[in-house]
Design a protein around this nucleic acid. Structure first.
Lengths: 205, 205
DNA sequence: CGCTGACCCTGACAGATGTCATCCGCGTGT
DNA sequence: ACACGCGGATGACATCTGTCAGGGTCAGCG
């Protein structure tokens, strides 16, 4: 009797990318794609139903992001190992993904031939992390922003004025300006727009 | 003698996505991936060497974006038809891609099964464009921004101060403020950060 | 229990932003 | 030849941003 195949679940909101990844992985005789979902909140139900050995999750998905979905899978279906497959190799994403229980973290710059190997390693319980990304993650460190500063900076992402943010968060304009100023200082930026980019780049937002 | 296969070139800076798309398209007996490149400036040399019938180009690539590469292919290798395959279905991208000579425009939300059909249609000389995207493109219209306004707004993308932008573009701060103000007005935004997001969303930047 | 530090909140103020008025050069139409 | 409109440039000024000083609350520690 032949060795059993590794059962896979794919989660990516881009149908074309998801279908292409399924085609790529199905070329391997020992890998079998048993489910595909397009949003984060479909991940756990599909994992519970199909019992994949490895779940390949994108990070940015509607309904729930892949990192939150990873935490759910670890809590409710610990035999399923998670491999994050994402466009943005942000050090903050890596740290949060590992903390949430992901076994591996692959960015879409990776050669296609390496994905199957990454899946097999994760299935065997090994960690798969790009060394450069791990280094960047250690260098960037945890976010220096307080929860409120993070919230105010996130609210500033879309270019809103202080008055608009104040209304949205039920704060005075002075409070909003102070939090923004603190966030600007902590990220080493000159403006709030730059602070947003820096925090996003470091995975702090 | 069997019908000849459709020769394809793939261009996407993400190796994993490119490899996966190659795997997906190679499942079709009448399609053959003859070349893969990872940057925009490799597209034309590869097209001239491999003579693909259809070139599938991403938009955002290093070296040269896929729309500029499309224009080059039309000029230098008119028998190769271009199909844009991109993450962001921006109406501005669609318009510029068609104007540059692309035969089709597919976003990565498209079901994987439709990609091969899109390739076949493009090969036959048919247009492949998402109707919703075409509508959005007509609604958004051409950019109302002057070349200088576009340049100044683009320089403001990274959150730079007016003084920094003035130095970078060799203008006075008053001039920069005036162009930014005009761009804010034309995009209907309240701040420059919002104007940047609006212009990007409409494909004007 | 008192002290300390972190976090959150607020308003005053100097400096930056965005609006407005104005001018110049160039291309187009009459 | 002239008038007009457009794009680009500039500075004055009202408004907004970011910094700073100050106060309140709460958890942790001695």
């Amino acid at each position: 009797m032949s060795a059993p195949t590794i059962r896979l679940l794919l989660a990516d909101d881009q149908a074309l990318v998801r279908g292409a990844l399924a085609a790529l992985l199905s070329l391997e005789p020992d890998l079998e794609v048993v489910a595909e979902v397009g949003s984060g909140d479909e991940v756990l139900p599909a994992v519970l139903e199909h019992r994949p050995d490895v779940a390949l999750l994108d990070v940015e998905m509607p309904g729930m992001d892949g990192i939150a979905a990873t935490a759910l899978v670890r809590a409710k279906a610990p035999r399923t190992r998670v491999l994050i497959v994402t466009t943005f190799g942000r050090p903050g994403f890596l740290r949060r993904a590992l903390q949430a229980g992901a076994y591996g973290f692959v960015v879409k710059d990776t050669p296609a031939a390496e994905l199957a190997d990454a899946v097999r390693k994760v299935h065997r319980g090994l960690r798969v992390v790009d060394p450069q990304l791990a280094t960047d993650s250690l260098v960037a460190g945890e976010s220096p922003l307080t929860p409120r500063e993070t919230e105010v900076l996130r609210a500033a992402r879309d270019g809103s004025t202080v008055a608009t943010i104040a209304k949205r968060l039920f704060l005075s304009e002075g409070t909003v300006r102070n939090h923004l100023s603190a966030a600007i200082g902590k990220t080493g930026a000159a403006t709030r727009a730059e602070a947003v980019l820096t925090a996003e780049g470091n995975g702090w937002l």
